[in-house]
Design a protein around this nucleic acid. Structure first.
Ligand SMILES: [Mn+2]
Ligand SMILES: [Mn+2]
Ligand SMILES: [Zn+2]
Ligand SMILES: [Zn+2]
Lengths: 128, 128
DNA sequence: CCTACTCGTGATAACCATTCTCACTTTGGA
DNA sequence: TCCAAAGTGAGAATGGTTATCACGAGTAGG
């Protein structure tokens, strides 16, 4: 684990909402002023591979990510108005990975729920 | 509905597997030789908006689509080896759209299952 | 017939998020 | 300390997708 990687991870920890790589670059530069974008992209790829980061869609052509613990298998709920994120248990229940459906052996799945968080549900706010 | 749009829809119908826009362009040109890529991209956007096409990930930086009926709410199972697609009922069951989770009002969700189809599960095949 | 307006089309240029290149530095173990 | 492997960063390149724009087909009204 290098100094740069630590900065990116710390920057990711700082977000309570979904963020783009650009957001992450800006945040990482607070602690590592000279960090290059290639390095951040590489850190993102590594973290995504390790389950520390998860893609939850895109906004204006840029990927949106969510900081995620590497613990239990679970999924995410993203507020389409403010980007707020909630971690929610896997709704598949008994139909877990490696089970069979329609003749397929299911090895993985991608689930993201979208909606409005409590704060945004109150106002008529809409974003992106 | 124009002639071009019909060609793209017909081309999409011809795929039993997930396909890229490039695949679609090639297929559409079988019946509409001069069709331009912009037209196909526009048709894809229209079909996606209408629920006739659904994005199921990407391969090598290109979006992967699946032809889909506009009927019941359901999701897809994609073979990571050959791209074969199966349509499968929504696993959320009672937790349908517009319900609440973690304080969120859930308005939509994105679910895709990945695995190996019966044919590919037999061989040791792996792709992309 | 005209005119005006809308919409789809397609060749092409532009965009721009992401990846690659390459020379250099850092890391961590022996 | 030494070294091979991995990481870094400025900049160039990539390439899927989108924006432009001139054109033609349809349509409604007169
Ligand atoms: Mn999480
Ligand atoms: Mn379907
Ligand atoms: Zn799950
Ligand atoms: Zn569903």
């Amino acid at each position: 684990m290098t100094d740069r990687r630590r900065s990116v991870a710390a920057a990711a920890d700082g977000f309570a909402r979904a963020f783009t790589v650009d957001d992450l670059i800006a945040a990482a530069r607070a602690h590592s002023p000279g960090i290059g974008i290639a390095t951040v992209y590489r850190a993102v790829a590594a973290m995504e591979g390790a389950g520390a980061l998860e893609r939850v869609g895109s906004r204006d052509g840029s990927a949106l990510y969510v900081r995620c613990s590497e613990d239990e298998h679970h999924h995410h709920l993203v507020c389409t108005a403010c980007g707020a994120v909630a971690h929610t248990p896997c709704p598949l229940g008994t139909n877990m990975p490696d089970s069979a459906h329609e003749g397929f052996v299911v090895t993985s799945h991608q689930i993201t729920l979208y909606g409005l968080c409590a704060a945004c549900a109150g106002t008529g706010a809409v974003r992106g």
